[in-house]
Design a protein around this nucleic acid. Structure first.
Length: 200
DNA sequence: GACCAGATGTACT
DNA sequence: GTACATCTGGTCT
C-alpha cells in the first residue's frame, strides 16, 4: 500500500472511541497512526497499548476525579489526542475514550513503521532500531508534542489521525498482560489492560 | 538483566 | 517550595 493510498483511507469514526476503554485498546492494535507535517508523512502500525480506565483506576491521571489543566482533554470528547509531558523530557500520547465526563484513555506504547522510516530515524537522532517501541520514542518518531494535545484523531485536518487498512486483528495474535509500573496499585496491578500485537 | 542519572512540568503543601 | 512523574539511554554486572 502506498503512502498516497494510506492517506486516503477514511479516518476512524468517533463512535469507535466511545466504547469501553479496554475494547478500544484491543481494537486499536493493527490500526494505522498517520502523521502529516511539512517534513512529510509518517505512518505507524500500532502494536502495543495500555488502557487507563478513569477515576477508579489508581494508575490513571484522573484517579479519584482529579481534573486539572493538564488532564482536561481526558474529560472531553472521545477520539481526541491527550499528550502529556513527563520526567522533564518525554512526551506520551493517549487516545481519549468513552465520553465527556468519563475521563478514560488508551496509552500508545509502541508501533511498527509503515511509511516514512527515514524521517522517523532522523527525528529519533539516527536510531535505526527500536524506532517506536516505547511511548516516548513513539512520540519522538511521530513528532508528537504539546502542540497536538487535544487534536482530533478522526479528522485529517488535525495533521494526525487514525485509520484502518485491514480487518480487526485476530484474537490469537493478541497478547494480554498486566500493565507496566503499577505494582503499588493493589488489585489494579492485576487488571489485564495491556495489549500487544504479535507479528507473525 | 538490573540499576541509575537525567531536566523540568505538574500537583499538592 | 518541594516531591515526584504512564521513560529512555547509558553503564555496570
Amino acid at each position: 500500500m502506498t503512502v498516497r493510498q494510506i492517506t486516503r483511507l477514511p479516518p476512524i469514526e468517533r463512535v469507535f472511541c466511545e466504547r469501553p476503554t479496554p475494547d478500544v485498546a484491543r481494537d486499536l492494535l493493527g490500526k494505522l497512526l498517520i502523521r502529516r507535517t511539512q517534513q512529510g508523512v509518517t505512518v505507524l502500525r500500532i502494536t502495543e497499548v495500555e488502557a487507563y480506565v478513569g477515576v477508579s483506576d489508581p494508575a490513571c491521571h484522573t484517579f479519584g476525579g482529579r481534573r486539572t489543566a493538564r488532564n482536561e482533554v481526558m474529560w472531553g470528547e472521545a477520539g481526541r489526542l491527550y499528550v502529556y509531558f513527563t520526567y522533564g523530557m518525554h512526551f506520551c500520547a493517549n487516545v481519549v475514550t468513552r465520553g465527556e465526563g468519563e475521563p478514560e484513555a488508551v496509552l500508545l506504547r509502541g508501533g511498527a513503521p509503515i511509511a516514512g522510516p527515514a524521517l522517523m530515524e532522523a527525528r529519533r537522532g539516527g536510531a535505526r532500531r527500536g524506532i517506536a517501541d516505547g511511548p516516548a520514542k513513539l512520540c519522538q518518531a511521530m513528532a508528537i508534542d504539546r502542540a497536538l494535545n487535544g487534536a482530533d484523531l478522526t479528522q485529517r485536518s488535525s495533521g494526525i489521525w487514525l485509520a484502518a487498512n485491514a480487518a480487526p486483528s485476530p484474537s490469537h495474535l493478541i497478547t494480554t498482560l498486566p500493565r507496566v509500573g503499577v505494582g503499588y496499585a493493589g488489585d489494579a496491578a492485576q487488571w489485564p489492560l495491556r495489549f500487544l500485537l504479535r507479528t507473525e
